[in-house]
Design a binder for these strands. Structure first.
Lengths: 221, 221
DNA sequence: GTCTATACTCCGATAGAC
DNA sequence: GTCTATCGGAGTATAGAC
């Protein structure tokens, strides 16, 4: 039997591109709706209204509301991971990279509150992210583990810091600062207010938690 | 003009009591609904169903859904404050009292997640607590300030610790631990899992943030 | 203080014409 | 891939009988 030619016609190329643009536009609008009405306030109907189509048309792009949540979750994870990775790449490996990476995480999350809440606060009980959408967060732990390993190798931290336990402990610093900032200063960006400026001070406590064998002050070349 | 007798008849006493019981029952049910369906999932209709009445009957006790949220907010604040106060009263004044108080806070919040989220995570954008319901949280800050002042007086911490700034900084510790525990280990009580057991270790860092002038080890009588 | 009845708005999702 | 029409359900809140 003959099927379609294996090389798709330019027409379907353009169609596929247009389709992808519409998908991205739906996600942009959904993100805006969540920002204004709360993560739980996202509704297909409101997205359709803003897109200028009737609600059933949305189903040509996403099979359900939960599928939109999942796509938003994935998009958030990918962007968040990228911002962390970039900040860490432009820093000195070790504690500095970890601090800069977590600061970038905080900055990104405050700038994308709705996605951040969807990803890390889970305010929609009926939504569970798919395995595929969850995958980047595993990579995020790996990144932080690597930075901790660098810090241990450089003598900034003791060997106990090269552990998942340390990742979790340090993650409570950033989570605490962000939770307080979001709840009490919902309009301030990273670096302003009573909470986020304390983060560097908190990170300076890490060597006290995992003291290196040799003095911390300066390491010799 | 004559009005009703100033001493109410026993009948209306009983009626008032019965009414109060119904109000408490509505709040109990509402709390359970929030626990099961999410804070945002609370609905008058579901409360009525579980109470075994028709939705309009609820309006004899609360003028609106938001009024129920507000009553729950107040109830949570009062209970939470009481648990903190009790733990602090049974501890050595100063850092110990602060730590025990915050641990009690964490315990209470994990045992009453729905109320805790309503109170400190604010997942219902359209709900703003009334001033009256918010009042206990001001008292909570005062309690913590007093414990910090005790710690400074006892030489456990430096004078900078007697400040609202220190209260906010320390609050990020408990907020971080709780946020992570609730998001990642939603079924574990305080003291189990990867996050809440780290809290005492975190509190031991506070003297490093506000170092006392005299050595910390032991204070002379 | 309970009910019925009702008004109103909103939602997710599907069927089928074009 | 868009639409109309519709199903079936949810919700808050009010009016008024009993």
């Amino acid at each position: 039997m003959r099927t379609e030619p294996s090389a798709p016609a330019p027409t379907s190329d353009r169609r596929a591109r247009r389709r992808q643009e519409t998908i991205e536009e739906i996600l942009d609008i959904a993100q805006a709706v969540m920002t204004e009405e709360g993560v739980n306030g996202l509704s297909l109907a409101e997205v359709a209204r803003r897109l200028g189509v009737q609600p059933p048309s949305i189903y040509k792009y996403f099979p359900s509301l939960m599928a939109i949540y999942d796509a938003l979750f994935l998009r958030g994870q990918v962007e968040h991971l990228a911002s962390m990775r970039e900040a860490m790449a432009n820093a000195t490996p070790g504690l500095d990279a970890l601090t800069k990476g977590l600061e970038a995480s905080g900055r990104w999350l405050l700038a994308h509150r709705a996605l951040g809440q969807l990803m890390f606060w889970r305010p929609v009980p009926s939504f569970e992210p798919s395995d595929a959408s969850f995958a980047p967060s595993i990579e995020m732990v790996r990144l932080q583990r690597a930075a901790l390993a660098d810090a241990v190798a450089a003598g900034e931290l003791g060997p106990g810091a090269d552990s998942d336990e340390a990742v979790y402990l340090i993650s409570t610093f950033i989570a605490g600062v962000l939770t307080q900032a979001m709840a009490n200063e919902p309009d301030l960006p990273w670096g302003e207010g009573r909470f986020t400026p304390t983060f560097p001070k908190l990170m300076q406590l890490v060597p006290a938690l995992y003291p290196p064998r040799t003095p911390t002050k300066k390491r010799r070349s």
